[in-house]
């Protein structure tokens, strides 16, 4: 039998959210993720960094961001940024800003690229403090801004802050590995990897045994050049995980030296380089100099 009252209440139940959604501006439409996210923090960061400049979120032809929806380990969340532009001199990705809304330091990194980067792609690992949006904002050489974002749920890793690993990283402070895994072809972007032994302490983590805060000590700047020209510069902080690790590209136009210079928050400087020489058909990285 048709139950009129039930029908009306059902109708109300179905139509109420639709009605609300219609009344609210679309920018305020609330998704489950936004409800958990700290949109206010993003608004602040956005205002201080980009003022009123437009940021396009229709960005899939410019930049995409990959991050796990649920982190295996909140202290080491792998992220990868892919860009779709050829880094030609007339239009290229100049900067990528990495913003993690709910972290104590939301602006975690600013990466600078050039046409000599070949491709403004980047992979690294970040710490997340709680459930959060991670945003990668590309600034093109024409000044336009494009944003890709991902929502990541992380659990406080049960790993020890200030544990054995941190002591080991401190003991090997500044030791680096710079390497290229694939064969090199001239004038084709080549991926390189930089690993830096460093505890990258935030100064915000309390040792649960001593009840003391570990002093902050982190890599703050990385400059990578090829044949003397900058290919990737990163201004970073403790958002980047312990033993900072980056994969990025450069464009070899001939023989040269790939060189990484690192400065930490205590102004210690570390350096690593890789000589790349021509053989018959390709260029080859023979071995690493430290």
């Amino acid at each position: 039998m048709f139950d009129r009252r039930r029908f009306i209440s059902l109708l109300a139940l179905v139509s109420l959210p639709a009605l609300l959604a219609a009344l609210l501006p679309t920018a305020m439409a609330v998704t489950a993720e936004d409800a958990e996210a700290n949109v206010e923090m993003w608004n602040k960061v956005r205002a201080s960094m980009f003022a009123n400049r437009q940021i396009s979120e229709q960005a899939e032809n410019v930049i995409t961001l990959e991050a796990p929806p649920r982190a295996e380990d909140a202290s080491t969340v792998p992220i990868s940024i892919h860009t779709k532009l050829a880094q030609t001199a007339d239009r290229y990705v100049q900067k990528i800003y990495l913003v993690i809304d709910n972290n104590p330091s939301p602006l975690g990194a600013v990466f600078t690229f050039t046409p000599d980067s070949g491709r403004a792609d980047l992979e690294t690992r970040v710490r997340i403090e709680e459930y959060t949006h991670i945003r990668a904002i590309a600034e093109l050489s024409d000044g336009s801004l494009y944003m890709a974002k991902r929502f990541v749920r992380g659990s406080y890793g049960c790993s020890a802050p200030g544990g054995k690993e941190s002591i080991e990283a401190q003991a090997r402070l500044g030791k680096m590995k710079l390497r290229i895994t694939d064969p090199i072809t001239l004038d084709q972007p080549v991926q390189a990897q930089l690993m830096i032994s460093h505890p990258n302490n935030s100064g915000l983590v309390m040792d649960q045994m001593s009840r003391l805060y570990e002093p902050s000590n982190f890599v703050r700047k990385i400059e990578v050049t090829y044949a003397g020209k900058p290919v990737m510069t990163a201004e970073v902080d403790f958002t980047i995980s312990q033993n900072p690790n980056f994969r990025f590209y450069f464009l070899p136009r001939g023989e040269g030296e790939l060189k990484a210079e690192v400065v930490d928050s205590r102004e210690l400087k570390f350096e690593s380089s890789l000589a790349i020489r021509a053989t018959a058909a390709t260029l080859q990285p023979p071995h690493q100099h430290q």
């Binding site: 295996e72 380990d73 690993e165 080991e168 590995k177 033993n243 690790n245």
Partner: peptide
């Protein structure tokens, strides 16, 4: 299992850095 792989992978990296 994915978590186990994640941590073993980081261990291999640390060994390489050492």
């Amino acid at each position: 299992h994915p978590r186990n792989v994640h941590f073993q992978y980081l261990k291999l990296e640390t060994q390489e850095l050492a």
